[in-house]
């Protein structure tokens, strides 16, 4: 009985950007098997927990099965957004590269 972890960047690539104070991270799995694995284990809860230190709001996950992709939409991610933020990365450009460092817990015992 084991729970292993996998680095998201080993299964997927990603790109992030902004709309106001909201950021999105598009995550594209490298193949169908990785997509199915991420569908089960890269949940909204796992994503939100990883981003928690930034003080983000609600996180939503959308699926685009035809291109093996997910779109994570993160509220209140940018401390005010391009106009209002005092952060260096006001537009969430660095978010995707950080997100790929997420260690996803994979519980192989749940099958």
């Amino acid at each position: 009985m084991k729970v292993r972890t996998v680095r998201l960047g080993d299964l997927a690539h990603a790109r992030s950007g902004d709309k106001g104070d909201r950021a999105n991270i598009g995550v594209v799995a490298r193949d169908r098997a990785s997509y199915e694995l991420l569908r089960r284990f890269l949940t909204v809860e796992v994503a939100a927990k990883f981003l928690e230190p930034m003080g983000v709001g609600d996180v939503k996950r959308y699926e685009l099965p035809g291109i093996h992709a997910f779109n994570f939409v993160i509220e209140k991610a940018l401390a005010g957004g391009a106009g209002g933020s005092t952060r260096l990365d006001t537009q969430g450009k660095a978010l995707a590269s950080a997100f790929l460092e997420l260690s996803i817990p994979i519980d192989d015992t749940r099958d």
Binding site: G17, K19, N24, V28, Y62, A69, N71
Partner: peptide, 12 residues
């Protein structure tokens, strides 16, 4: 694929 999901919200 990365650009398709760039700065979108609900893909539907």
């Amino acid at each position: 694929a990365e650009q398709l999901v760039y700065e979108i919200d609900d893909p539907s």
